[in-house]
Amino acid sequence: MHEQPPPSEAADALAEIRQRHEQVLEQSLTPNWFWWVVGLLVVGFSTAVDTEDGLAIGIGTTVFVLGLCAAVGVVVVRSLHAQPRSELLGTAGALPIAGFVLAVLAVTLPVSLVLGALDTPHAATWGSLVCAVLMIVGGPILMRRVRSTMLDRVTKGSR
């Protein structure tokens, strides 16, 4: 016969399981530094485009593409070691991500277009600065929400 563990041991075991779930989820989420890198790359690329100089645009495009590939590569490799079940994200996690992307575009594109229509110097750069701020501030908030959603699903699934 199996003996029931004492309540304190059971509580410790459950706390350990929750901690390991949190570690897996943390490894699978986009880290805060990523939002900074992408925001800065967007600003750098837009600044290069605003120069209207072919060489600057070529260099800016190359730095943007290589930088973005490197950042995404690091995030992907980092997350390969910890892949939570796909149902943990679900619609409740996917909708905020899609909403975030749409919100950034819904703010950034009109700002850039209006600034361009007003003949504002460096309109693309100013618009990309808005994009960068939204990503740098909003990205970590989004990841906290996604993390919370996934942890809630882990907890509900373990009941």
Rank of each mutant, 00 (worst) to 15 (best):
V74F: 15
S79H: 07
V65Q: 10
S86F: 00
V63Q: 06
I57N: 06
E87I: 00
I57K: 11
A82I: 03
G67R: 07
V75P: 02
I59V: 15
E87L: 00
A92H: 15
V65P: 08
R85A: 15
F64I: 10
G73Y: 06
A70V: 14
S79F: 06
R78Y: 09
A92S: 06
L89G: 07
L66Y: 00
T62A: 03
F64W: 14
T91K: 15
R85G: 11
T62G: 02
A70L: 12
C69W: 10
V63W: 14
Q83A: 01
V76W: 13
G73T: 13
V76P: 04
A92C: 04
G90P: 02
G58K: 05
I57P: 07
I59P: 07
G67W: 03
I59M: 04
S86M: 04
L68V: 04
L89M: 15
G60P: 09
L88M: 09
G58H: 12
I57D: 06
G54E: 13
A82P: 00
V65G: 10
V72E: 03
L88T: 11
V63I: 15
V72P: 01
A82Q: 02
T61P: 03
E87P: 00
S86D: 02
H81R: 15
L89I: 06
L68I: 02
V77Y: 09
G60L: 01
T91N: 07
A56W: 11
G93D: 12
T62M: 04
Q83Y: 03
L55Q: 08
L89A: 10
G93K: 11
A70F: 15
P84K: 04
V74Y: 13
S79E: 12
I59A: 03
G54Q: 09
G54F: 04
P84R: 07
T91S: 14
G54H: 05
V63S: 02
G60D: 04
C69V: 14
V76K: 12
T91D: 08
L68E: 01
G54Y: 05
A70H: 10
S86Y: 00
T91C: 10
V77I: 12
T61W: 13
A56N: 13
L88S: 09
S86K: 01
T62L: 09
E87C: 01
V77R: 12
G73A: 08
G58I: 10
A82R: 06
V74I: 15
C69Q: 08
G60K: 05
G54R: 06
G67I: 02
T91V: 15
G67P: 07
T62F: 01
L89W: 08
L89N: 05
L88E: 05
T62V: 03
L88R: 14
A82F: 03
P84L: 13
H81G: 15
A70M: 12
G93C: 11
R78C: 05
V65Y: 12
L80I: 11
L68H: 03
V65S: 13
G60E: 03
E87D: 03
G73I: 15
G90K: 00
A92Y: 05
V74K: 11
L68P: 02
L68M: 03
G60H: 07
A56F: 13
A71Q: 02
Q83V: 04
G60I: 05
V77M: 09
T91L: 14
V77S: 11
G90R: 01
T61C: 05
I59C: 01
G93Y: 14
T62I: 06
Q83D: 01
G93H: 13
A71M: 01
G60M: 07
T61N: 08
G60Q: 08
